[in-house]
């Protein structure tokens, strides 16, 4: 990896300070933690961190496994970043749930997830709730 600012090459290490900028390069920085809990009535997936091209497959796999046996609630309230790669995973899971007569319910907080759902116009297509409790109450 080569970084140039002002026509000069920035050393390829972590935390180089150059022209007053802190440039963090050299190590992967996508962080996503996924926990799942299966109950008699549903599967709860709790995602924390960033969902992008690198981390979306992990969420996709967990969704796929849960949807094989139950309806799913995905708690995205602690997701700090999501792009269309992550959105595509959610939409695919929603379609799969619908086809198998299950449901996919999303728990979202004000922030990156609600913003992306809004600007892409899919907020009315997916089932969203403000807490796990309200998502379960809607079952």
């Amino acid at each position: 990896m080569v970084t140039r600012i002002g026509g000069k090459e920035v050393p390829d290490d972590l935390g180089s300070v150059y022209y007053g900028l802190t440039v963090l390069i050299g190590s992967p920085v996508t962080h996503l933690t996924i926990d799942s809990q299966r109950t008699a009535s549903d599967c709860l997936i709790v995602a924390q961190g960033e969902i992008d091209l690198a981390s979306a497959p992990e969420l996709e796999q967990e969704l796929g496994e849960c949807l094989e046996s139950a309806s799913v609630i995905v708690d995205l309230s602690k997701v700090t970043f999501i792009d269309s790669t992550g959105l595509r995973v959610l939409l695919t899971a929603h379609d799969r749930a619908t086809q198998t007569e299950r449901t996919l319910r999303l728990v979202v907080a004000e922030g990156p997830v609600t913003k992306l759902l809004s600007i892409t116009g899919v907020d009315g297509h997916l089932h969203t709730f403000d807490s796990v409790e309200s998502a379960r109450a809607d079952a």
Binding site: M1, V2, T3, R4, I5, G6, G7, Y19, G20, L21, L24, I25, P28, V29, T30, E50, D52, L53, A54, F81
Partner: peptide, 21 residues
């Protein structure tokens, strides 16, 4: 800051986050 900048990243999805940062 002022001036041109350039970041070249390998074709590895983990570095999408590097570009964001």
């Amino acid at each position: 800051p002022a001036g041109p900048f350039e970041l070249r990243i390998p074709p590895d999805p983990v570095h999408v986050a590097t570009a964001r940062l």
